[in-house]
Design a protein around this nucleic acid. Structure first.
Length: 660
RNA sequence: GCUAGCGUAGCUCAAUCGGCAGAGCAGUUGAUUUGUAAUCAACAGGUUAGGAGUUCGAUUCUCCUCGCUAGCUCCA
């Protein structure tokens, strides 16, 4: 006998084996119709972390014969349900593809955050013309509304079956990835049978709306050395409305693309004559960058950092000592060899130069933590296919700093770094970011440093992050750099791609005797090795500005706006007064423009609006008489006549507060 | 780097089947002197990314190079 506990605490008992769908029917026919899948928790069996085992299962999967299970039925209102349906939709797409192109082979078809994809091996790549054919076939399959049926068998049986079907990729997957006696599952939908863990929707009609989005290539098991596969991306929703909302949102997002806005508003350029991935900051973009530099600099001073400058090019030996060269040779610009045979490298990072400062004389524990900061310009030879606007470039400037401290100081310093990053993010209004703590993979031998020190560092990093209540904190084992654990702050661009901005990294490697052999004299008079922390709250000015452009859709708050105010004259008669007003504003430290063209005021307003100027100041007879400006705020609309001195003071306050 | 797609004026985009390369915006000049999202007109703007080929004739077809875009891979 099986006891099923439902979320409301009620219990149901079953003598014969039942599925979640049967349980749903017991409760009501409506619920049975709406059930997409179920979450089953078995309190009696614990998983690795000691929690009751929790599995998402198909509505038609059979529950255990006896014992106790907690069961939560999923309908399309539940978040998990969408993912399950999309996975099923991937199967439906694969089925449609198999019908249209019988000689393709199936690879994998998982869901993504916004939909799903399926990888196929196919001689000729898919074209956009194929999209509508595939979609039409999928529509047919959904109308047929056949159920998804789970079939389990032993590995060897499955291999024989797949060999018979000519699905050699799947055969290889089973042969290399699974032990002989393991049981594997298939899902069958009509004539389509696919190796799959599940779970799936009960039948095809649960797919309410779908769309094939794009194609691309991929590689079998993600390895470039393996054969190339054709990937088809799609998305699906329970409701047509949701799909069209998603598509319009996608269109809207594209309008925020920093590459488009950067061109339109003359913020930056990347010109092939300069070089791929090498950014030229146009005057307006340079102003934004300068404001960010000012923001960071004021934080540095507050937090007892010391500024320094160092060259962007230096002898290769420095990077040989650090270990970066030749390990990262592929992603560096090749060294320059000068007459006497010396080789110089365009620096791919700043740390060795900062270490030079630390090393310039013996250090005492009394001066630790030593925090050295530089807006360090670095160059990396990124793969050409990776380059993208401001977010992935070959030359960039980090808001870099290196903290040299004792082991006991690590926690406090780490905390300070997070605090600074959060403070900067808050100032620019970033709320939608994720923090990722990357830890060591204990089974790997690639890491340097004492495991005990690592353990201690990792637990203190995690403790600090928990204490600081970071939103969306993720701990990932095995993602640490070989030299130490790190915390990364990531955000998404308008196309949903994730980018790492701020980063804080502990480093036990560079100070070590194998590298720069850094020391300080402790209070005991003995020499000790310091710990280094690499940190950059913005990451780089390039990438951060790119994300910032998209965040504000180029409508920057007053303190960041390249042109903060524009004075618009009604006619030539007020040119003198307009010039006077603009001069006063400039004198007050505002970035002011002056529109003296012979356009009508409507056109000037329109131009100012399109240029996203925070404040437009109309001046004519009335304003001249009052010593005022007719203000029109980008957010506020018409604000009426304001006395010039007061208006200037208001704006100065808004800038000083860095109001958003 | 790989696979696919794309590349026409500063920008956004046209150009039928291979048959005189065109428009809007921006720019320049002139007229207009204007009260809250486009005043009118004239002018100028091109090695159709670059190169080679096929053809009487190439923006259009083929090949190569460069660049851009998406995805993959990479990311100290």
């Amino acid at each position: 006998m099986l006891k099923v506990v439902l979320p409301d605490g009620s219990e149901k008992r079953f003598e014969k084996r039942v599925s979640p769908l049967d349980v749903a029917s017991e409760i009501g026919a409506g619920l049975a119709k709406a059930t997409v899948a179920a979450v089953m928790t078995t309190p009696e069996t614990l998983d690795e972390s000691g929690q009751p085992t929790r599995t998402v299962i198909s509505a038609t999967d059979l529950l255990p014969e006896s014992g106790v299970v907690e069961l939560r039925l999923l309908t399309k209102k539940d978040e998990e349900a969408l993912d399950i349906m999309r996975h099923s939709c991937a199967h439906i797409m694969a089925r449609a593809v198999m019908r249209l192109f019988p000689d393709v082979q199936l690879a994998f078809g998982p869901t993504t955050e916004t939909g799903f994809y399926y990888d196929f091996w196919k001689k000729e790549p898919f074209t956009e013309d194929d999209f509508s054919k595939i979609e039409a076939e999928m529509t047919k399959i959904i109308a047929e509304d056949e159920p998804f049926e789970r079939i389990e068998m032993k590995r060897d049986e499955a291999i024989a079956l797949l060999k018979g079907a000519g699905q050699t990729l799947k055969v290889e997957h089973l042969e290399t990835g699974l032990a002989e006696n393991e049981t594997v599952s298939f899902y069958r939908q009509g004539e389509f049978l696919d190796l799959c863990r599940g779970p799936h929707i009960p039948s095809a009609k649960f797919v309410g709306a779908f769309k094939i989005m794009s194609t691309s290539t991929s590689h079998w098991k993600g390895d470039v050395n393996n054969q190339a596969l054709c990937r088809v991306y799609g998305t699906a929703f329970f409701d047509k409305k949701d799909l069209s909302a998603f598509l319009t949102q996608l269109e809207e997002a594209k309008k925020r693309d920093h590459r488009v806005l950067g061109k339109k508003h003359e913020l930056f350029m990347v010109d092939p004559r300069v070089g791929s991935g090498l950014v030229v900051w146009l005057p307006k973009g340079a102003i934004i960058r300068k404001q960010l530099e000012n923001l960071i600099y004021s934080e540095l001073i507050k937090r007892d950092y010391q500024p320094m400058y160092s060259p962007v090019i230096c002898r290769v030996e420095l990077f040989e000592t650090s270990g970066h060269y030749p390990y990262y040779a592929d992603s560096q610009f090749p060294p320059i060899t000068v007459d006497d045979g010396d080789r110089y490298l365009l620096r791919p990072m700043n740390c060795p130069l900062h270490i030079m400062v630390y090393e310039s004389r013996p250090r005492s524990y009394r001066e630790l933590p030593l925090r050295l900061a530089e807006f360090g310009n670095v160059h990396r030879f990124e793969q050409s296919g990776e380059l993208s606007g401001l977010t992935r470039v070959r030359g960039f400037t980090q808001d870099d700093a290196h903290i040299f401290c004792t082991e006991e100081q690590v926690e406090e310093e780490f905390k300070n770094c997070i605090d600074m990053t959060l403070s900067v993010f808050r100032t620019v209004g970033f709320t939608d970011y994720e923090v990722r703590l990357s830890f060591r993979d204990w089974s790997s031998s690639k890491y340097v440093g004492d495991p005990e020190v690592w353990k201690k560092a990792q637990s203190s990093l995690e403790r600090v992050c928990r204490e600081m209540n970071l939103p969306k904190l993720d701990v990932v084992e095995g993602e640490a750099a070989f030299y130490g654990p790190k915390a990364d702050f990531t955000v998404r661009d308008c196309l949903g791609r994730k980018w790492q901005l701020g980063t804080i990294q502990l480093d036990y490697n560079l100070p070590s005797p194998q590298r720069f052999n850094l020391k300080y004299v402790g209070s005991d008079g003995e020499l000790h090795q310091p710990v280094m922390i690499h940190r950059a709250p913005l990451g780089s000015f390039e990438r951060f500005t790119g994300i910032l452009i998209e965040h504000f859709a180029a409508a920057f708050p007053l303190w960041l706006a390249p042109e903060q105010v524009r004075v618009l004259t009604i006619s030539e008669k007020y040119e003198e007064y307009g010039k006077q007003v603009a001069a006063r504003m400039k004198e007050a430290g505002l970035r002011v423009g002056l529109d003296l063209t012979s356009e009508k005021i409507g056109a000037k307003i329109r131009n100012g609006r399109n240029d996203l100027i925070p404040y437009l100041c109309v001046v004519g007879a009335k304003e001249e008489e009052l010593g005022a400006v007719g203000v029109r705020g980008r957010k506020q609309g018409e604000m009426g006549a304001i006395e010039v001195g007061k208006f200037i003071a208001d704006l100065q306050a808004e800038v000083a507060e860095r109001r958003l």
